[in-house]
Design a protein around this nucleic acid. Structure first.
Length: 377
RNA sequence: GCAGGGGUGGUCGAGUGGUUAAUGGCACCGGGCUGUAAACCCGGCGGACGACAGUCCUACGUAGGUUCAAAUCCUACCCCCUGCA
C-alpha cells in the first residue's frame, strides 16, 4: 500500500515511515524541494539525483500558465518533460489563491486569476486543478484549497475552511474520474486533502473531520507559516497532526526553517516543502549546522573554510566561503547554484539524520543536541 | 595659440545664491525572506562624539573675492575634452 509507519518515537509524536509511489519510495520524514515552474531553481535534475532527493514539487498555477498543461501532456507529462524519473507532488494552485492577493477573485465555483505574466484572465477550480495535475501526471496531487489568509477572524476562517471542504469533495470526485483515463499521465496517483482553520483549534478539528469523511491518501496542514507567530504554528501543528489518521502521511505545507522541520517532526509531521533553502540561497543565505549565515558578508572575503565545516556535500568539499562570496559579489549565477545545492544538501541530510534518530529511538536526544548547536552558532 | 565645453562625495551623474552633508544610479556595508509574481526586497552609506535627541568638524579642481548667505556669482591659476590652426 501507499504508506506505512515503520518506527514511532517513544517520547515525541515523531515517526519514520515509507511512501511508495510508481516512481520510487520515499522515506519519511522527508523534505521536498520546491520546483514551481518545472525546475528547482538554480539546480539541475542531475544535482537533485546526486542529493538523493526522491520527490520534488511542481505547481499547477505556474505550469498551467506556462507552458500550459496541454503542452506538458503532449510532451508525455511533467516527469518526462523535465526529465525527472523520480516522484513529483504538484501543488494545486491553492497557495496562489493566497499569494496572488489582488490578482484573483474567489467564488464558489472557483478562482478567477489575472495572470501575473500578461494580465489575462484564467480560471482555476477543483475540477480544473485536478485536470491540470492529472495531465502533469504527479504522483501526489493536492486538493484545490483556499489557503486562508492570516489574520482571519473566526468567521472568516470558518467560511474559508468550509469552502475548502466543498472544494475537496469536488477535487476527490474529479480526481477519481480522471485517474486511469487517457487524459492522465499519472500512474497510481494519490490525492491529499488540506486541513484549514487558521489558528482556531476547533475549526482545525472540524476541517479534519470533514476531510477524513471524504477520505484521502494523505492529509496536509495548510494555512500555516503565512505570517502567524511561530509559537502558534507549532501549537496548531501539535494540536492537529496527532489527530490525523495514523496510517496516512501528514504533510505540513510550506514549512520551514531547519528548526521548524525538527520541531514539527516532533509534533507528528512526515512531509515538508519550503522555498526557503532555494530562495534564501539565491539571496545569499546558507544554512549550516551552526545556524544560518549570510555569505555576502565582508568577513568571508578571505575565509577558506567551506560553507558548513561539518557538511560533506559536493559544494562544501570543493569550494570556499571566500569563493562563494566572490561569486555573489560579482553577481555570478554560479553563486545561486552552489548555495542552492548546499542548502538542499543540508535540508535533505538533516531529514535523513532525523529519520535515523527516530529509527534508533534517539530522536528526542538528537533534537536537543542539534538545535543547541545550531543556536550556539 | 584661438574658439567652445567641462572639473561635485568610492564612482558615474543631478544641482546654477539660501529648506544642501548635497537628488539618482552603481559600488560598498548590513538585514529580511517559510505550499516561489522573489538571481528579490528593505535599510545604511563624509568624519568625530552621543544610548537617543543631537552637537561639532571637513567638503563640490586650487587660491582669493563679492554677499547676511556660495557647489552655485566675480578674478587669477591648474587640469581635462572637442573643433580650428
Amino acid at each position: 500500500h501507499f504508506f506505512n509507519v515503520e518506527h514511532k518515537d517513544p517520547v515525541t509524536q515523531a515517526r519514520a515511515g515509507r511512501i511508495r509511489t510508481a516512481h520510487g519510495e520515499i522515506e519519511t520524514p522527508v523534505f521536498m524541494p520546491v520546483g514551481t515552474a518545472g525546475t528547482v531553481k538554480a539546480v539541475t535534475q542531475e544535482m537533485l539525483e546526486r542529493l538523493d532527493a526522491r520527490i520534488i514539487l511542481g505547481n499547477t498555477y505556474h505550469l498551467f500558465l506556462r507552458p500550459g498543461h496541454e503542452t506538458v501532456f503532449e510532451l508525455g507529462g511533467l516527469r518526462k518533460f523535465i526529465s525527472w524519473n523520480r516522484a513529483i507532488l504538484t501543488d494545486s494552485g491553492g497557495f496562489q489563491v493566497f499569494s496572488l492577493g489582488e490578482l484573483r477573485k474567489i467564488r464558489e465555483e472557483g478562482v478567477e486569476f489575472r495572470s501575473h505574466l500578461d494580465g489575462s484572465k484564467r480560471f482555476l477550480s477543483p475540477e480544473v486543478s485536478m485536470r491540470v495535475q492529472s495531465a502533469l501526471g504527479a504522483d501526489i496531487v493536492m486538493c484545490f484549497d483556499e489557503c486562508t489568509p492570516y489574520p482571519a477572524t473566526r468567521e472568516q476562517a470558518r467560511d474559508s475552511l468550509e469552502l475548502t471542504t466543498r472544494w475537496s469533495r469536488r477535487s476527490r470526485s474529479e480526481f477519481d474520474l480522471l485517474k486511469d483515463t487517457p487524459q492522465s499521465t499519472a500512474v497510481s496517483p494519490a490525492l491529499f486533502g488540506i486541513n484549514q482553520g487558521s489558528v482556531y483549534e476547533d475549526l482545525r478539528s472540524r476541517s479534519l473531520e470533514q476531510l477524513v469523511e471524504i477520505g484521502f491518501e494523505g492529509y496536509a496542514i495548510g494555512g500555516l507559516s503565512v505570517g502567524e507567530e511561530k509559537r502558534r504554528m507549532y501549537d496548531i501543528t501539535e494540536f492537529i497532526a496527532p489527530q490525523m489518521p495514523a496510517d496516512k502521511p501528514r504533510y505540513l505545507m510550506g514549512v520551514g526553517t531547519p528548526e521548524d522541520l525538527i520541531e514539527c517532526v516532533a509534533r507528528g509531521v512526515d512531509m515538508f516543502d519550503c522555498v526557503m533553502p532555494t530562495r534564501n540561497a539565491r539571496n545569499g543565505q546558507v544554512f549550516t549546522s551552526r545556524g544560518k549565515m549570510n555569505v555576502r558578508n565582508a568577513k568571508f572575503v578571505r575565509d577558506e573554510r567551506p560553507l558548513d565545516e561539518e557538511c560533506e556535500c559536493a559544494v562544501c568539499r570543493r569550494y570556499s566561503r571566500a569563493y562563494v562570496r566572490h561569486l555573489y559579489n560579482c553577481g555570478e549565477m554560479l553563486a545561486s547554484t552552489l548555495c542552492s545545492y548546499h542548502n538542499l544538501a543540508f535540508y535533505l541530510d538533516t531529514m535523513r539524520r532525523v529519520r535515523q534518530a527516530i529509527v534508533l529511538g534517539e530522536f528526542a536526544q538528537f533534537r536537543a543536541c542539534y538545535l543547541d548547536r545550531m543556536r550556539a552558532g
